[in-house]
């Protein structure tokens, strides 16, 4: 991280099924499209996933906050969620 630039810390929780891959792709596309800098990590171990209290995958975690689970949000929603978390 350099200076004032805020880089969002994104985690995609999911064991690696098709939906998890789609969530990752959608998130990247949404944030790239909005020009929001981010760092994305995939969390695939069940113990780590469960630590977030998430029972339905795929889940999206932004700056250590679970913002969605069990669904793939629309891109506009991902951007909105990112902005909300960022300003919090």
């Amino acid at each position: 991280m350099k200076g004032t630039l805020t880089v969002l810390n994104i985690k995609v929780l999911g064991a690696g099924c098709a939906n998890c891959k789609r969530l990752e792709a959608e998130t990247r596309a949404a944030l790239d499209g909005a020009g929001i800098p981010y760092d994305l990590v995939k969390v695939t171990e069940y113990a780590d996933i469960m630590a977030y209290g998430v029972m339905s995958t795929p889940a999206l975690v932004i700056n250590e906050k679970v913002v969605s689970s069990g669904r793939i949000p629309a891109r506009s929603q991902i951007v909105k969620l990112a902005n909300e978390t960022e300003s919090a």
Binding site: A51, Y52, G53, M55, E64, K65, V66
Partner: peptide
């Protein structure tokens, strides 16, 4: 099962 990252 944790509650890391309170759900928003």
């Amino acid at each position: 099962v944790g509650n890391k990252g309170q759900r928003v």
